[in-house]
């Protein structure tokens, strides 16, 4: 079907371009402003930097303690990611490919979580964490975020696992493999694409998690990078050190951008799947 180019096409293309610019431009603007000085920035907010000046980055790194918060973030995101993904994989396997008494009941309980908005549970959850001495601790946050059920991940991974051939376990058993070996040597390798998708979404959720770290981490030395930037922004209202703030925001965005570039296709596929099931 050959398309004719009309005046309308021009308008449509302009519209698409505008939306794309509204996304790209603020990021680019912050990026190039982050190489300028405050005085230059206050004089003209559009001018390009005269040289590639990395001072703001080292200042942001030191003043905002980004190094420290980055280490915290790596610890929190890394451990939660590995532990959480491992537990989800085990859980999805047992709940979709094994038959046992009470399985239906467990599924029903998990499905209940779809009706719980979670926001009303924030206070009791905080009190509980406090009484378990898990507040103001990154490890506490890891425990909170790694142990639990998530319908989206279970459906995603469970759906993937149930598409594997039915007699896999049986033939492994005939060959003398224990169920642990079967899981680890056969099921996990075959489910890798599904596990990776789950891990990608866990990563995004953990790295972008703000409310949890904000509620549970009181000590600035334990801030994750998101909370750190929030607090830095609160302070900036008094210091008006704009260019350093720009540099900080760019540093926070770099992992997101790299991650998006690496897994763009999978993220898009998984996101649409998740939305349709939620």
């Amino acid at each position: 079907m050959a398309e004719r180019r009309t005046l309308m096409d021009g308008i449509w293309r302009l519209l698409l371009l505008l939306w794309a610019v509204s996304i790209i431009f603020p990021v680019v603007w912050i990026l190039y402003q982050s190489f300028r000085t405050n005085t230059a920035f206050f004089q003209d907010i559009w001018a390009l930097p005269t040289s590639l000046n990395w001072d703001n980055y080292s200042k942001a790194w030191n003043d905002y303690n980004i190094g420290r918060s980055l280490v915290n973030t790596v610890y929190y995101v890394g451990v939660s990611l590995v532990l959480g993904t491992f537990l989800t994989t085990l859980n999805a396997y047992a709940l979709t490919r094994m038959n046992f008494r009470g399985r239906k009941l467990i599924w029903a309980l998990i499905m209940l979580s779809l009706f719980l908005p979670g926001i009303n549970a924030l206070v009791p959850q905080y009190i509980l964490m406090k009484s378990l001495h898990l507040t103001n601790s990154l490890t506490g946050l890891i425990i909170l975020d790694s142990f639990g059920e998530n319908v989206f991940f279970l459906m995603l991974l469970g759906g993937f696992m149930s598409s594997l051939p039915r007699d896999l376990e049986e033939s492994a058993f005939m060959d003398g493999a224990s169920i642990f070996q079967t899981f680890w040597r056969i099921i996990v390798p075959l489910s890798t694409p599904g596990i990776v998708t789950v891990a990608i979404f866990k990563f995004l959720g953990l790295y972008n998690n703000f409310l949890g770290p904000f509620i549970y981490l009181g000590d600035p030395a334990k801030y994750t990078i998101g909370v750190n930037m929030y607090q830095a922004n609160m302070k900036m209202q008094y210091t008006s050190d704009w260019v350093t703030m720009f540099a900080g925001v760019i540093i926070v965005m770099v992992p997101s951008i790299l991650f998006y570039m690496m897994f763009q296709k999978r993220i898009m596929e998984g996101a649409t799947m998740g939305a349709m099931k939620g």
């Binding site: 859980n91 467990i106 979670g118 009303n120 549970a121 009791p124 639990g148 059920e149």
Partner: peptide, 24 residues
């Protein structure tokens, strides 16, 4: 295996999701 696969997630779910919701 079943116990190890089910219990951690389920207990976490009871503790950090269902219990706080009830307590609210």
């Amino acid at each position: 295996f079943l116990f190890l696969a089910i219990a951690p997630s389920l207990i976490g779910y009871f503790l950090f999701t269902l219990y706080p919701n009830l307590m609210s």
